Every structure is written in C-alpha cells, then in structure tokens.
Amino acid sequence: MIIRNIEVSQFRNYGRCTTKLSPEINWIYGANGQGKTNLVEAVFYLCNLESFRTTKPSLLLQEKKAEAVLQAEVERKKVLHLVRVNITKKGRQVFLDHKPSRRVSEYIFSFMALSFTPEDVNLFRSVPQERRKFFNRIMAFNDPLYFNNIQEYSKIISQKNALLRQGKIEQIQLWNEMLAKSAVQLMKRRNSYVEQVNQHLNDIFKDISGRPETLKLIYKPSLNSADYEEKNCLQQLEKSLSRDLQYGFAVLGPHRDEYHLMMDGKKDRDFFSQGEFRITNLSLKMTINRLFYEGYQFYPVLIFDDLFSELDDEVINNILQYFLTLKNQIFIT
C-alpha cells in the first residue's frame, strides 16, 4: 500500500496543504507547532478512519471551520484509488473512487496504517478495552471470518445484557449456549494469532533493542478453558449468573479478555519503564507488520511520530538499520 499524494484542507492547523509522497521513507521535520504530527495524523485517518490522538471529530477541524477534507491517491495491489474523507463535528463521510462508501468495513479492510506515537505507547497501560479494540482491528483485517465472528458475538452479548438488566433469567440459558459457541471460535482465533506473533516477536525485539531478555505476548481469556471446549465455557457462563445479575451485565466472555506483554516473565504494567514500553510496543508493531506481508503480501503504511525520544543512540541506530530492510511506505516526524 502506497499513498502517492495527499491533500489536507481545514484539518487541525492546515488551511490547505498538498504534497507528493515518496513510496519509501518520508521524513517530516520542522519547528515545534508547525504541524508535523497533524500531517501524519491525517495520513493515519485516511487509512484507518480514526485519529490516534482523539475520538472527537470536532478537534480535527481547523478553528471556526465546519468541515475538514482529506484526499489522497492510494495504490493498493498495483491499483490506484482516489479516497476522500469529509469530516464534520457530527462525523465523517467517506468516498472511494468518487463513490460514497456505504459500509465502513469495506473501506477499512482495504487500507491500513500502523502507528507508533507517544499516545500508542500507552496501549499496555490503558484499560483492557483498548487492547481488545486494537487486536480486533488487526485480526479482522487479516481474517474476514474473525470480523463476522466479532459481529455475531457482539449481538449475542448485547441481547444477554438486555435480559440481565430486565431480570429475565428464564431466557438466559439459550443465550449462554449461543454465547459459548461464539466465544470458543473467537478465543481460538485470538490464541492462534498470538501464537503467530510470538513466532517473531522476540527476534524482532532483540534486533531492535539489542537486549538479551525474552519478550512475549500473552493472551488471557476471561473464560478459563485450556482446550477451548464449548461445554466447559458454557458451565462457567452458567455459574456466573448470580454475578451477572448483580452487575447487570455478563462478567465472563471474550469481551473481557486481556492481553499483556511479558519480558523475562515480568508483566508490562507492573515492571516496564517508559523506555521499555516504547521499545516493546515498537517491536510488537513491527511483528504485526511482518505477519501482514508474510501471510497476506500486504504492506501497511507505517507512521512514527516522535520516534526517537527516550531511546539511546544504539537503539536508534538499530531501528534505522531495521527500517532499511522494510518494503513499507514510512512516515517519520
């Protein structure tokens, strides 16, 4: 995937900015406050239809403007597409090749950017929901069946929660049975993806950091089932009914799953320094990138904002050498 050019209008501090882009490394430099991060944020938004800095569309608009417009020529699998996103305070409107994109899923399964920013470093410090959202996006891009599984599971858990709030426990068993079946499929796919990550993660971590420790991604399902057996999961769901009723929502299931990074057996949030959060997060993103091109011959756009802060010279040199081996289009501020 390559963004050939981009036009940014009334976005953040940009009135209008048009530029051609390199298919390899794009260095974006300038004084503080000139809009370096804003430009790569625009690139990220065009690829993922979200910002890595805010969930509020109003903050993306230039002051006193009603609409921002992002437009680019994007090459994917040697086909050139024209993409445009109009952003207002109420939301966004997406156009692909001059036609409105009616289903967001069709768009976000065509384009992808991986980012490494000061905000992204908090991925393993923030609430579990953010990690689930991140891995769901990655896995759904790779596996359309996973996306369908997530949608099915979300409908089931929503219905079960509605019944719990209404106290209609006589109908819960039926939904637990559907929940267990859908949950097992999700858990198997998540576990399989984490296993794929761990085939490369430690080697990439060592290449980039030069450190001897062992880095591993841990998947921790809320349903305790070593063999992902549907019957076992159903029994746990049935036993949790009193807690479900107490809280008014289902307390067990993939919607409560967790992911952790472990370095020599030490859990991220409990032991990692700020620098370790940065280098392990970067290693994870580069591992995901490798899985994209090894498994699907897809090269996502890579965005690195404030990349070198809190990293020593040796690590910076290792990172730059690693970047030279990549075939992705890269943006570095």
Rank of each mutant, 00 (worst) to 15 (best):
M262C: 05
T19N: 03
V104F: 06
S51H: 04
I156G: 08
K267N: 09
L217M: 15
K99G: 00
Q129K: 13
Q235K: 14
S283C: 00
D268L: 02
M263H: 01
Y293S: 03
G275I: 06
T18M: 01
K266L: 12
F135V: 06
A162E: 15
D270A: 07
E41M: 05
S192A: 15
K266Q: 07
K216S: 05
A42L: 08
N198A: 07
L324F: 03
V197S: 05
N48M: 12
V184C: 10
S182T: 10
A226S: 12
L201F: 06
V194K: 08
P57L: 05
I330V: 11
P23Y: 05
Q199I: 11
Y193Q: 05
T37K: 11
C17K: 06
V251R: 10
Q151T: 14
L163K: 10
D207L: 10
E230P: 01
A66C: 01
N328D: 02
T117E: 04
E106A: 11
A113S: 08
K160P: 06
M1G: 02
Q166G: 11
K155V: 13
K239T: 04
R190Q: 14
Q196S: 13
Q166F: 09
E24P: 00
L145D: 13
I157F: 08
N86G: 08
D264W: 03
D305M: 07
E276N: 10
S101F: 00
C47D: 00
K56P: 01
R137Q: 10
I288E: 13
R102N: 10
N142I: 12
K64C: 00
Q297W: 00
K266H: 04
R269L: 04
Y219P: 04
M262H: 03
N317W: 01
K267M: 05
V85G: 06
Q235Y: 06
Q62N: 09
S22Q: 04
E294A: 12
L164H: 09
A140M: 07
T55V: 14
G167S: 11
G91R: 08
I3W: 00
D203P: 03
G265K: 01
N318T: 13
L320N: 13
F95G: 04
F116H: 12
L307D: 12
P144R: 12
F277W: 03
Q62E: 09
R189I: 08
V127K: 11
S209F: 10
R290K: 15
N289C: 00
L261E: 02
Q297N: 15
Y146S: 09
R165K: 14
S242N: 13
C17N: 04
I279P: 05
F331A: 01
V43A: 02
P300H: 01
R243L: 13
R125F: 03
P118Q: 07
E213C: 01
